[in-house]
Design a protein around this nucleic acid. Structure first.
Lengths: 153, 153
DNA sequence: TATTGTTATACTCTATAACTATA
DNA sequence: TATAGTTATAGAGTATAACAATA
């Protein structure tokens, strides 16, 4: 197998393992991958309208309604009126939501450091830089595919 | 942000981009990520019982029934009787299924080589090796977590 | 008119449990 | 008795379309 395929497969395989593990860790709670993602976004962005959450998660506003309903029922978030726009609602974290987000953050940092524990600093830096370049490269490829060559527009 | 976090985030971000792109490429067909995964497994493993597919995809046999139903309706696979066990069915690829799997394979190879095009051979090798080590490391961590220390068993 | 969130409806992935046919 | 696949049922994520309230 080519190194190129090893890289692509390696990324997809590791991400799948990590994602499965994260999903398992939600067992026994009302959290799911999608709900945790929303929680994570609100934790980092602060109180958000459902429209902005829809954009952040790249899903429809209707979908956000369902995710917020579930998180609200489980006590992770609350809907608050928007101060200046009475159409909109602000999704805010409860104390439980804040605590949960901080725990997820700590677990993520723990996992990250456990994962690279066998690599020296130079290797870690090289790996991080290489992955960044791949993501940039990928986005450039997608952008190029979306914007056909000028003579065909 | 630490290099450890950059590595973990880099892997998750790139995998998400690739997976979204793959899902978009299925638009207009009956394929989805899960169905394509099953197609992929049959392509590489050969005619398979639904039990073995359930194990390979890490889902329940009931789930395989649904995926095979959809792929069969769309003409990608067929159910054939198992030669020696009349309880079992063998899922086999149709000509369309074979052709589609080969196309996916070609696209995957194209993407992989496009992705690493900006890296020299040594960088590609190092990246591939680093990712392999991370996956191994992750599986060791999970195994360690699943099997508590001896004095507590 | 345009935007925000919701109700209505539908499809897909997924799971558990009960059942049929076969081993 | 155990196994392979299916029917029945349910929860979750997702989408489109139509609608009410507000901007």
């Amino acid at each position: 197998m080519s190194d190129a395929l090893r890289v692509l497969d390696g990324v997809m395989r590791l991400a799948d393992l990590v994602q499965r593990d994260a999903a398992e860790s939600f067992a026994g709670t009302a959290l799911t991958t999608s709900r945790a993602h929303l929680l994570w976004v609100v934790h980092h962005t602060g109180p958000s309208t459902q429209q902005s959450l829809a954009a952040a998660l790249a899903v429809t506003p209707r979908n956000i309604t369902g995710l917020v309903d579930a998180l609200e029922s489980a006590g992770y978030v609350e809907r608050a009126p928007h101060p200046s726009d009475r159409r909109a609602t602000l999704v805010t974290l409860t104390a439980l939501g804040e605590r949960t987000a901080r725990e997820m953050s700590a677990q993520r940092e723990q996992l990250a450091s456990d994962l690279v524990a066998g690599l020296d600093e130079a290797e870690q830096r090289a790996l991080a830089a290489g992955l960044d370049r791949l993501s940039e490269r990928f986005e450039a490829l997608v952008a190029a595919a979306d914007a056909p060559s000028p003579e065909h527009t």
